[in-house]
Measured scan of single mutants.
Amino acid sequence: MPSETPQAEVGPTGCPHRSGPHSAKGSLEKGSPEDKEAKEPLWIRPDAPSRCTWQLGRPASESPHHHTAPAKSPKILPDILKKIGDTPMVRINKIGKKFGLKCELLAKCEFFNAGGSVKDRISLRMIEDAERDGTLKPGDTIIEPTSGNTGIGLALAAAVRGYRCIIVMPEKMSSEKVDVLRALGAEIVRTPTNARFDSPESHVGVAWRLKNEIPNSHILDQYRNASNPLAHYDTTADEILQQCDGKLDMLVASVGTGGTITGIARKLKEKCPGCRIIGVDPEGSILAEPEELNQTEQTTYEVEGIGYDFIPTVLDRTVVDKWFKSNDEEAFTFARMLIAQEGLLCGGSAGSTVAVAVKAAQELQEGQRCVVILPDSVRNYMTKFLSDRWMLQKGFLKEEDLTEKKPWWWHLRVQELGLSAPLTVLPTITCGHTIEILREKGFDQAPVVDEAGVILGMVTLGNMLSSLLAGKVQPSDQVGKVIYKQFKQIRLTDTLGRLSHILEMDHFALVV
């Protein structure tokens, strides 16, 4: 994948999101292997301009796509893939009243899908469409860049269908997702969380590099694949309309690839034109409109599966009536509230959605109805927002919020430890010299600072030695090549209790 991002070429006709291997024109390309080798690009942008032909009021008969309808489940399912879809609609009884809503608040519980998330729908649909058009064949390999849930859905379907599955996901995604993927037989590649989507090191860039190296491999490409919004247009939206008897006044959905909100909203605009569509985008993402909503100094966020630093091709923002931004604290607070007060075992993005819903639905009156999409299960986040310690460490809970008995030293300040200034190293000294210094002084790690004293990161003896043994660096290389740029900081005025929580999850903390 090139470091400079080429513009994806656009073909003359058809839909841009065809499933299957992508040609340089962004659509299915038939021909000899030699032709494909000559024409197939190194990668295709996940934010390529959409060429979708959908228009409100256009006859369904003019759609270029294969459409399906929700099917009634048999008493005995032939395999677990038949437990994807037909998820329950559940009334939220307490939270709406707590925040003064007059309307009825309903939750579409997508964590009841077989793999635990709304992404099971698009995973199965992308595979079925690729099999139907002859792209996927027995023994082929599926590769997908994902925040985890699409990966789980694909790995689940691949396990049943017999495909090899490789999932490329950023490091910030939970260990629970990784464990589930491994249990399903998927191979996992992790990428830096802070890598831009168009960087060769991003999950998108690495996935395309693997595709170019592995024979008979395919990126189904949830960011561009029409099967993504079509899955929701054909099934999720129809289920909502049936469950609500066609009567709903507002739908609120958090947005990642945009397939969920695009597919549902398009069908609702056709069948229930008075329904307002509300999009939820986390602070630090750029999906919301108008652009002024996205202006923030924050560039990272903890909530998973929603928000991006690019506009995915499948996201149709014209069908969203209003956007709201959400933050991590309210997302996790509301997710825990949904679990504790409503018994809905949902993930953090569901918290984002409901946090926005109780604001947006203030305009609705008694007798009206708001539906929220709860995308995934708490299963993926047992060591994250479900953990009091994690919430404390991230600053989303305060010590006084917890009532468990603490040891005698818990409320003492870090400054009472009488710490001395640490050994520091410059980023320009060599790895070999740094190892000598650390061994001589008896230290395992040291902060790396520039000549102005600005902290650049941390270097550890173990990481340097393993990097040297693996051949990633040489003793003569500058130590700046092996620094940890993500590390926890703590102030002298913070409590030892807070430091204790940090050290339970990290090997060190830097006192500043």
Rank of each mutant, 00 (worst) to 15 (best):
C244I: 02
Q242S: 06
K137N: 13
L268E: 01
S227R: 07
R58H: 15
V206Y: 04
K269N: 07
A207M: 01
T146Y: 01
G263F: 00
D35W: 04
S123Y: 07
N228F: 00
D238C: 09
T193W: 08
H22I: 04
N228K: 01
K39F: 06
I143R: 01
C109H: 04
I264R: 04
I261L: 07
I92E: 00
P64N: 07
I127G: 02
P78G: 12
S23Q: 11
V255I: 04
P215W: 08
V90L: 05
S117E: 05
T13Q: 09
V206L: 13
G115L: 07
A157L: 03
P64H: 08
K271N: 14
S254H: 08
L154C: 01
P16A: 07
P70H: 10
E4K: 14
R209W: 08
T150S: 03
G151S: 03
T53V: 11
A130Q: 01
V189C: 08
P59N: 11
G139F: 12
I152M: 07
V10K: 12
D238T: 04
V10F: 15
S32W: 13
T260M: 04
G100F: 12
C109W: 06
G85P: 01
M126G: 03
D245G: 15
S217F: 06
L241P: 02
A114K: 06
L77F: 15
R45F: 06
Q7E: 12
I143P: 00
E110I: 01
A195K: 07
L154P: 02
L56G: 05
R209D: 03
G85K: 06
T257P: 05
G151Y: 00
D120L: 07
V118E: 05
G151R: 00
A195P: 07
K75W: 13
K177S: 03
M169Q: 02
F111D: 01
T262H: 05
R132W: 04
G115V: 06
G85H: 09
E201K: 09
K39S: 05
T191W: 01
N194Y: 11
N225Q: 01
D35M: 09
P145L: 00
P200W: 08
R91W: 02
G148V: 06
L42F: 11
I143Q: 01
S123R: 06
T235C: 12
Y223L: 02
S61L: 09
W54E: 06
I76W: 07
S147M: 02
L101V: 06
P200T: 08
I122G: 00
K177F: 00
F197G: 05
G139L: 07
L56P: 10
L42N: 04
G11M: 03
A38Q: 06
G151C: 01
L184D: 01
I167Q: 08
A265E: 05
P70A: 10
A253K: 05
G274C: 03
K247D: 03
V168G: 04
C15H: 10
S73T: 14
P74W: 03
E201F: 08
R196E: 04
S175W: 08
N194C: 09
R182T: 06
K82F: 11
E62V: 07
C272T: 11
G162E: 00
K177A: 00
Q222H: 02
D86P: 10
G57N: 13
K172D: 02
E37C: 08
H22Y: 09
S147A: 05
S63P: 07
S32T: 06
L181R: 00
L101F: 06
G139Q: 03
Q242I: 14
S175R: 04
R164A: 07
A60H: 10
E40C: 04
S73M: 13
W43M: 11
G153Q: 01
I127Q: 06
L42M: 11
M169E: 01
L156D: 01
L42W: 07
T87D: 00
A207V: 02
S27L: 14
P200D: 09
I84V: 14
I152H: 00
L77P: 03
S199T: 10
V160G: 07
L105A: 06
A8C: 06
P59D: 05
C275D: 01
T68L: 14
F197R: 06
E104M: 04
T68S: 13
K94S: 15
V252A: 14
E213H: 06
E270D: 09
S61M: 10
